Amino acid sequence: MRRLGQIVVVGILLLAGFNVFAEETATKDFDFGRPDFQAVVSMLSMEGHGTHDVSNCSVKKLYYDEIAEMMQKGMTKDEVIDYYVKNLGEQALQAPPQKGFNLTLWITPFVLLLVAAVFIVFILKKWRNRSIPAGETSIAPEESETEQEILSSMIEAERKKYM
């Protein structure tokens, strides 16, 4: 009886190992360099492991094998992407689709920067126009006539010294 139990356990382990081996060889025949496969892989974030190296990251390996298996079954690029979006939501993608509310989120920062720049230019022009009243060209205060006469006589005296 004990012998029979050992044989059953060994048989189950062999079948499980064969099943894993069969799945592994099925994806080994798959061309991971296919353009449609690479397009799908580049669009998925893979739970934050999308930028990791395949040789070092077990999560990315699992995603690669799963995507390869789906594509071997005949699923197209769009069907694979839709499968992940349906199951994991839009966070499954590296970048959200650029439509609807997401498009607003893409555009809003640039619009705000443009509005802020226009506002700053408008305020600076307004401040500049306030600091120099109309008709004045210099910032120095006006001199009285007597001060001008004294200054011109001093300049004349200095000029006569050197003539």
Rank of each mutant, 00 (worst) to 15 (best):
V41L: 06
M75Q: 09
L88K: 10
R34Y: 02
F21A: 10
E156V: 04
P141Q: 14
M71Y: 02
E142C: 02
M43K: 13
K61G: 01
L13Y: 04
D78R: 10
E24C: 07
R34V: 01
V8L: 15
G100S: 10
P96E: 02
I12S: 08
P141D: 08
G135Q: 06
Y162R: 13
F32I: 04
L103G: 01
V59D: 08
M43E: 13
S55R: 06
G50T: 02
L124P: 00
V121E: 09
M163D: 11
V118Y: 07
L14N: 11
E149F: 05
H52I: 00
T25K: 14
L4E: 04
I7M: 09
E90P: 00
T104K: 05
L124R: 14
V115C: 08
H49N: 05
V10K: 15
R34A: 04
L105Y: 05
G50R: 01
K73H: 11
P133A: 08
V111E: 01
V20S: 12
A26V: 04
I132Q: 11
L13Q: 10
S131M: 14
V115G: 05
G100V: 03
T27G: 01
L4M: 09
Q94Y: 07
G17S: 14
N87Q: 15
F32G: 03
E156Q: 10
R128G: 05
L62C: 07
I150Q: 06
E145R: 15
E23I: 08
A140V: 10
V20K: 14
D53E: 14
T25C: 10
V8E: 14
D65Q: 11
V118E: 00
V111N: 03
V54L: 15
A95V: 15
A92T: 02
S42W: 03
T27E: 06
V8K: 11
V41Y: 00
S138W: 10
A140P: 00
Q94A: 15
L93D: 02
Y64F: 15
P109I: 03
P133Q: 10
Y83K: 02
M46A: 05
A95R: 14
V118A: 15
G17Q: 12
S58R: 14
R3A: 11
M71F: 02
M154I: 07
G50C: 02
S152R: 12
A92R: 00
Y83H: 09
V54P: 00
M163I: 12
L105H: 05
G74K: 03
Q72G: 12
D65V: 02
M75V: 00
Y162T: 12
A92V: 06
Q148W: 09
V80L: 01
M46G: 00
V118W: 07
T108A: 15
S138D: 12
P97H: 13
T27N: 04
L113T: 07
G5V: 05
V85F: 02
E145L: 13
S144T: 15
A117Q: 05
E79S: 03
L105E: 13
L13D: 08
V115Y: 06
V8D: 13
K99H: 07
W127Q: 11
A26L: 11
Q94W: 06
D78W: 02
N129D: 14
Q72N: 14
K73D: 15
G100D: 04
Q148G: 04
I123T: 12
